[in-house]
């Protein structure tokens, strides 16, 4: 709107600097030879080598990856169903309750979610004998629960965006609801499903607090391992790990953005709801 350098653009630019300086510093110092993370000595990739030989980290990364993939997939299915029910089924008994339960996990402090799920698992074990002990299964259940809320929000935003004319036309022409869903709704919301799954996966991969509560012996996730390392102070191999994770995420997000962009070219500016 204004071409001269005003207050708003300068503040905005500073804001972006604030967002990116920490990330850039992580990446730069992952290539630092010195053990003192913030004192630059010379370029080196030795922390990456060390990282790739660290059995403990690789193991934790593999556990986190498995948990992330399974919970993101489950969250995608449940979250999409929840979004469809909320967006396409009109009014029904319990709609307010479902709306509340879908939106509350997004802001619920993680310590509460973690503690409450753990206590549920302990209570269930003493009553039904399942889940026996805590570990991968309980983390997957916990992650599915909070990730499905995020998937539901992303998919719901897409459903609200898409006009239901095509669905109605297909219905008028005699297509069954299942046919309409598979042939029209699903292909249209596919980009949102991809970004929903990716979001769920990264959230699961990143979760420390909830996993710490519901985890058991033998199920140490990557964030739990990082947290125990970081509590003792900064360590350069964590920087290297961070750089790798940032790289993977950046590539993934750009890929997703590219898929979204090439599949829908019209709805510009409406993608703000799809974080």
């Amino acid at each position: 709107m204004k071409s001269r350098l005003g207050f708003v653009p300068v503040m905005a630019a500073l804001g972006f600097v604030f967002l990116y300086v920490p990330i850039i510093s992580l990446i730069v110092y992952s290539f630092n030879e010195s053990k003192l993370v913030t004192v630059w000595s010379r370029f080196s990739t030795k922390w990456y080598v060390e990282l790739l030989n660290d059995e403990q980290i690789l193991n934790a990364a593999w556990i986190s990856f498995k948990i992330g993939a399974i919970s993101a997939t489950a969250a995608l299915v449940f979250g999409t169903i929840a979004a469809l029910v909320l967006q396409r089924f009109g009014r029904f008994r319990g709609k307010t309750l479902l709306t509340g339960m879908v939106s509350a996990p997004l802001v619920m402090p993680e310590v509460i979610t973690g503690l409450s799920l753990l206590l549920l698992f302990v209570a269930m074990e003493s009553v039904f004998g399942w889940p026996a002990g805590r570990g991968l299964t309980t983390i997957i259940i916990a992650h599915t629960t909070f990730c499905m809320a995020f998937v539901a929000v992303v998919v719901q935003a897409r459903l609200a965006d898409m006009d239901s004319d095509q669905e109605e036309a297909a219905m008028d022409l005699g297509a069954t609801p299942a046919r309409v869903f598979w042939d029209i709704t699903l292909p249209t919301i596919a980009p949102a499903l991809i970004s929903g799954w990716l979001l769920a996966f990264t959230l699961s991969l990143d979760d420390l607090v909830i996993a710490s509560f519901v985890s058991g012996p033998g199920a140490t996730t990557l964030p739990m391992l990082i947290f125990s390392k970081v509590r003792l102070g900064v360590s350069p191999d964590v920087n290297a790990l961070a750089t790798l994770m940032i790289l993977i995420v950046a590539v993934g997000v750009m890929l997703a953005a590219w898929i979204m962009h090439s599949s829908k070219s019209k709805t510009a500016g409406s993608n703000s709801g799809e974080i």
Partner: peptide, 27 residues
């Protein structure tokens, strides 16, 4: 918008960790 959202996708724990390196006494 993408620039705003991108940090949100990168690990929250690691972004908090990055601040230790910036803020500590010899940071």
């Amino acid at each position: 918008l993408m620039l705003v959202i991108l940090p949100f996708w990168t690990s929250f724990l690691l972004r908090v960790y990055a601040w230790i390196g910036i803020l500590k006494t010899n940071g």
